[in-house]
Design a protein around this nucleic acid. Structure first.
Lengths: 347, 347
DNA sequence: GTTTAGCACTCAATGACTTAGAGTGCTAAC
DNA sequence: GTTAGCACTCTAAGTCATTGAGTGCTAAAC
């Protein structure tokens, strides 16, 4: 059976109505609200066909119809018209991103807050994965007698610092010396290039300060090995409580227990996205039982053309796709732009 | 009417039972489970007295009794015996705090996670408020052509960094020069001591780099003025969903909407604590409608004898006070110890 | 052939009513 | 002062009838 023009209109009406009301939609409602120019009986016939084809379903005999996952998929792929953000909303995003962007963490968090506020669903933002490839600068700073700080800067702009105990005898001059030697010898080198012979050279030159050297090397090593802030920012988890499908505590618990597991979210965000642009996963398309009744809209963001992270929105399958897709797309563009400014194109 | 020994025992039994079962406690239950050596009828008499005195109440005529806020207060003040942490629990805390403590933020987060895991309620940890009094070190680092990083270290161990655009002509040597001049002139000075004449001197000396100087001064100023990471870490919010008193979506919403407002939490944590040691606030004692049905156990933590923050647990009034109080106390001690090591006694 | 009015049918939601059970308070006996 | 006994209260759970929204089918109208 073909899904002709009028069937499309009926399907669209059912999906639109269900998205806003969360109630099964009956033939009378469609005839009245969406003026297709035909009687409820005709619409009932079309609905019977659509149900047979699997685009809609009936919770029980005497209820209206609700879209099936297949129905939503058809809607997203063929029927939906993206709903642009208002000028005001675009303005809010711009303003938030321009003002007081200090560090990457703050930007990520801001993106999450905005995403959840604008969509009224739950937002997930994966922090950027910029691998450090080499070490840029090291600095020892005397803080107090017997206490110093060591700062390591990597070429991706990540800064690590740590306090350490030092012998009282070590003065600011000594620390400068150590910093200088390390900088001179190691600057710009990747970890694997820091060879044994080189290390021996340094250890020889700074024999007195073996302990500090060890700590310094530790920190450099750590900075190279550890994925920088492999974190996920979640925003607006509580928005979900306003969705009628989550008016039941058990469902909330299932969802939240999944949102609590960072590795699972990671997998959802990275595994769910199909490469470039916005991806929509509807219900069972999400590779995870437990969020069967949810949909996700996810997209990667990039710096200098290189994909470095992704973000997304999770909500009920009865999601305002038209809007959410626009918001997610707009957000990745802005996030990319701002991050480009902060961390440079080095990543 | 005096609250004699047997009344105490009955009250204690009611509270203990109610804390574990969350069900109103009847006279028969007490007689059977808590073996006071008297019949249910006698206990009923005692219960009638306790109710008259306001220590317990009845949800409805044919139900058992539940403790009133006054009852909990009496329990916490006079009846309760603290329940020590097991060796294993203490071990977990130690291990978590010893291993991989990198920066203050991480420690705070870890404290929150532990606190919520051990208590199964919601944990709140206010990040330490260590005012920076003076500036310690500044460093400009060339990252790429036309891109540099500026790092500012304050005497409290806080490190701020930011990327900035620089003229292509500026090389690594120039940056070192600028860093050196700034360090030499400004090191150890508090903001108010950075006088106009001194600044003129620096601007004269580094006239070519006015733009960078401005940025550097901005960052130093910011570091001094901005309260460092005035954040609250929340952990185990979802634990609340397991409490029977939150099996109703409306209550969850009310609670969560409060937990979302940082300023309110701030007020609760800072305003609720009565100075030294662990403070318990029960139900209406909390200065906030909306969490009338909750209790809080809060305590300050300190470094070098100076109070720099506080942490706490929020749960239903039917909270395991005996355990939570011990956990909170143990946690503040450990947090103080670890922070002392990280940020030194300078704060 | 398509559309529509009409009607019998289904089923969830709602409310009235009943019953069971837990727990009390009171009285009288110990 | 303590306790057994009993009438009383009130919620929770179950049953049943009613209501109303919505359907599917049939036959008539277009």
């Amino acid at each position: 059976m073909r899904i002709d023009d009028r069937k499309q209109k009926v399907l669209l009406a059912i999906i639109r109505d269900y998205i806003t009301t969360a109630e099964p939609v009956g033939s009378r409602t469609i005839a009245k609200k969406y003026k297709l120019g035909v009687s409820p009986a005709t619409i009932r016939n079309e609905m019977a066909d659509l149900e047979e084809m699997g685009y809609i379903e009936q919770p029980h005999t005497s209820a209206g119809r609700i879209p099936s996952e297949r129905g939503y998929r058809y809607y997203v792929d063929y029927l939906m018209k993206r709903k642009k953000l208002t000028k005001e909303e675009e303005h809010i995003i711009h303003r938030e991103f321009e003002a007081r962007v200090r560090d990457v963490g703050q930007v990520i968090q801001k993106a999450g807050v905005l995403l959840s506020q604008l969509t009224q669903y739950t937002a997930m933002v994966l922090s950027p994965q910029i691998e450090a490839s080499s070490f840029k600068h090291i600095q020892l700073i005397s803080m107090q007698p017997a206490q110093a700080m060591i700062i390591v800067v990597m070429d991706n702009g990540i800064v690590h610092h740590r306090m350490l105990e030092v012998p009282e005898s070590l003065n600011a001059g000594d620390m400068d010396t150590i910093s200088c030697v390390l900088n001179a010898k190691l600057q710009g080198l990747a970890m694997e290039k820091i060879k044994f012979t080189l290390m021996q050279e340094i250890y020889f030159e700074l024999a007195k300060h073996k302990q500090i050297l060890d700590l310094a090397m530790d920190l450099i090593h750590e900075s190279l090995v550890i994925k920088p802030e492999d974190k996920i920012y979640l925003g607006g988890v509580f928005n979900m409580l306003n969705q009628p499908e989550f008016h039941n505590v058990e469902k909330i618990k299932t969802l939240l227990s999944i949102l609590e597991q960072e590795d699972m979210l990671h997998q959802l965000l990275e595994g769910g996205s199909s490469g470039v642009g916005v991806t929509v996963r509807i219900g069972g398309e999400i590779d995870n039982e437990g969020i069967r009744e949810c949909s996700m809209v996810i997209a990667p963001y990039s710096v200098g053309g290189r994909r470095i992270g992704s973000l997304g929105v999770i909500g009920p399958t009865r999601m305002e796709y038209a809007r959410v897709i626009s918001v997610v797309e707009f957000m990745t563009k802005n996030l990319s732009r701002v991050l480009e400014r902060i961390i440079g194109v080095s990543g």
